[in-house]
Amino acid sequence: MKIAFVGKGGSGKTTLASLFLRHLAAETPAPAMLALDADINQHLGVALGAPEALVMPTLGANLPVIKDYLRGDNPRVLSTSDMVKTTPPGRGSRLVGIDEDNPVYRECVREVGGIRLAVTGPFTEGDLGVSCYHSKVGAVELLLNHMVDGAGEYAVVDMTAGADSFASGLFTRFDVTFLVCEPTVRSIGVYRQYLGYARDFGVRLAVVGNKISDGEDLDFLREQVGDDLLTWVGRSAHVRAAERGDLRPIDTLEPENRDALRAMRTLVDGVEKDWPTYQRQAVEFHLRNARAWASDRAGRDLADQVDPDFVPGPVALAH
């Protein structure tokens, strides 16, 4: 399953993503997992237990490695320079699993707190005025386009705040999108914005309430989001300790909050993969980008990269 955590800045999406990952890692047997930090504020590693000073290799800096590997010998992709963030896989492309050994993972993935993590890389001073953060997040989109995840495997992505992911087709790359929502008007505003954009694309959206203090908070969320409210996490001494740098075992999380994580996994595990739709949406957004800018930049029609008869999935990965 591919899972996104989205929400208003400060809503706690990174905290919830890290709790969910640590909950999965504590299960017996522990499932195969890959964590991806696609937020402009790169805090997922610290939330998983990495020291602040840890320097991670980044997906953004290793984009040539990613393109070279994923391209494989796909005859429709003439060169790695023609690969863009939306380039869909086709026959000859290399597909990647969640838990495998490949050049991309060797270069970009490191274990943090027992969880395999890759990061897009922060927005640096050198990017100011000449780049946008979506150029880095594009590495995540390209990787997810070529990722085949099986039963009991989880790719968990901590996304940029708000509705920034709608700048590309990245928002369609997930089986479940958890929108972390505080009981505030501003947080509800982000929920409504996200819901409005995602409605026409079959995005499976589940709201997870966060920082719920009392019945009034819960009533407010229920009134505002209705059946989209899957579960909620209350104010937590466990989380406050982690924010002070005291990362405690996940087994010490309050039982009701641990139950919320179980409800989230139950939802995810009940989703059936729809590989034809997954590929169709990848192709749709690739054609949009080809028309808008990518073909002009490449000097040829990148719509030709689409393999009309190709559908990814476990069978394609095996071959």
Rank of each mutant, 00 (worst) to 15 (best):
P75F: 12
S93P: 10
T184I: 04
V271G: 01
G196V: 01
H23A: 09
Y69W: 15
T14W: 05
G196E: 05
L179T: 14
G152M: 06
L117V: 11
I66T: 11
D200H: 10
Y191C: 06
W275Q: 10
Q193I: 07
A161I: 04
G9K: 06
T15F: 05
R280F: 02
G299M: 14
G10T: 07
L247D: 02
S18F: 08
L24Y: 10
V271L: 02
P314M: 14
T58G: 12
L117A: 11
E256H: 14
L16Y: 09
R186S: 15
E111M: 03
V190K: 03
V208P: 00
V157K: 04
I66W: 04
T15S: 01
N102K: 09
L54G: 03
A161Y: 01
A294T: 13
D296Y: 00
F285V: 07
L78G: 07
V283W: 04
I115H: 05
T120A: 13
A32F: 09
D219F: 11
V6S: 03
M264Y: 05
I66R: 07
I115S: 00
E272G: 12
E27T: 12
E254S: 06
G202L: 07
T80Q: 13
V130I: 15
G97I: 10
G169E: 01
L170V: 11
